Amino acid sequence: MLLPRIYVPSTSPEDWKRLLAEPDRQWRPEYSAWAVAHAWEAAGGLPPEIVGLVRETPFFAGASPELLCAFPEYTVDLPGGRRPSQNDVFALLRVGPNTAGMAVEGKVEESFGPTLGEWLDGASDGKRQRLSYLRDLLGLHLEPLPSTLRYQLLHRTASAIIEASRFKTDAAIMVVQSFSDKATSKDDFLQFVDLLRGQMQDKGLAEIKLPNGLPLFVG
């Protein structure tokens, strides 16, 4: 599927609404799309909690990230099947002497969607091809992968890596921007980081070693 590569600037959160697959259902305060759009527009760029996460990551040596450009509801093609990975935001950052491509997944009270076991139930050849690609990209060669792993975390992180590589940035970042004080899906996220052999930090982003050598940071 050929995805559009021409974008226009936004003037308000309402400009984000038309990009949704189901705008009438998804455009509500209890949904992440609404929350992400209002947070980014209110900040006039990078929300302060994301600025803090990046700045406190040792790789970036205390530099404050500068937003170069941000793309709401940004889709990234993946092998196998016709559905791309749709990011709430993809952003290009300048952080001191480095650049980074960042995928953002917003969450209010939503889960990370189906587990890998649920997603693979009756899987087509296309799904198996996609999973093989994601495993190679992320260096996940454990057999078998936990059936409780959330599939969305795999393809959202892959989006960050694919686009960071395409734009030739110095690092890839995947951030879950949470708008909940209940930490509803934190255990799912921590399972994912542990599987990638990353170490969560008290502050900043966890660093992951990728087979292609690109630094990956998640948080």
Rank of each mutant, 00 (worst) to 15 (best):
V36A: 12
H38G: 00
H38E: 08
A39R: 08
W40P: 02
E41I: 10
A42N: 11
A42R: 13
A43K: 08
G44F: 13
G44W: 13
G44T: 06
E49D: 15
E49T: 14
I50K: 07
V51Y: 06
V51T: 15
G52Y: 06
L53T: 01
L53E: 07
V54Y: 02
V54P: 02
V54G: 05
R55V: 06
R55C: 11
R55Q: 15
E56N: 13
E56L: 12
T57H: 09
T57C: 06
T57V: 09
P58Q: 12
P58H: 12
F59T: 01
F60C: 04
F60S: 06
F60P: 02
A61E: 14
G62A: 10
A63Q: 06
A63V: 02
S64F: 08
P65Q: 09
P65K: 09
P65C: 11
L67K: 07
L68K: 03
L68V: 03
C69M: 05
C69V: 04
A70E: 01
F71A: 01
P72I: 02
P72R: 04
Y74K: 01
D77R: 14
L78Y: 05
L78A: 07
L78E: 05
P79Y: 12
P79S: 15
P79N: 14
G80K: 11
G80H: 11
G81A: 11
G81C: 12
G81P: 12
R82P: 08
R82C: 08
R82F: 10
P84Q: 07
S85R: 01
S85G: 10
Q86E: 10
Q86R: 15
N87A: 14
N87M: 11
V89K: 00
F90Q: 02
L93T: 01
L93W: 06
L93N: 02
R94G: 04
R94F: 03
G96L: 09
G96E: 06
N98V: 09
N98M: 13
T99C: 03
G101I: 02
G101V: 00
M102R: 00
A103V: 01
A103M: 05
V104Q: 00
V104M: 04
E105R: 13
E105T: 11
G106N: 08
G106W: 00
K107E: 08
K107G: 06
V108H: 10
V108L: 10
E109V: 13
E110P: 08
F112Y: 15
G113D: 11
G113N: 10
G113I: 10
P114E: 07
P114C: 07
P114I: 07
T115D: 15
T115M: 15
L116T: 13
L116N: 13
L116P: 13
E118F: 14
L120Q: 14
L120C: 10
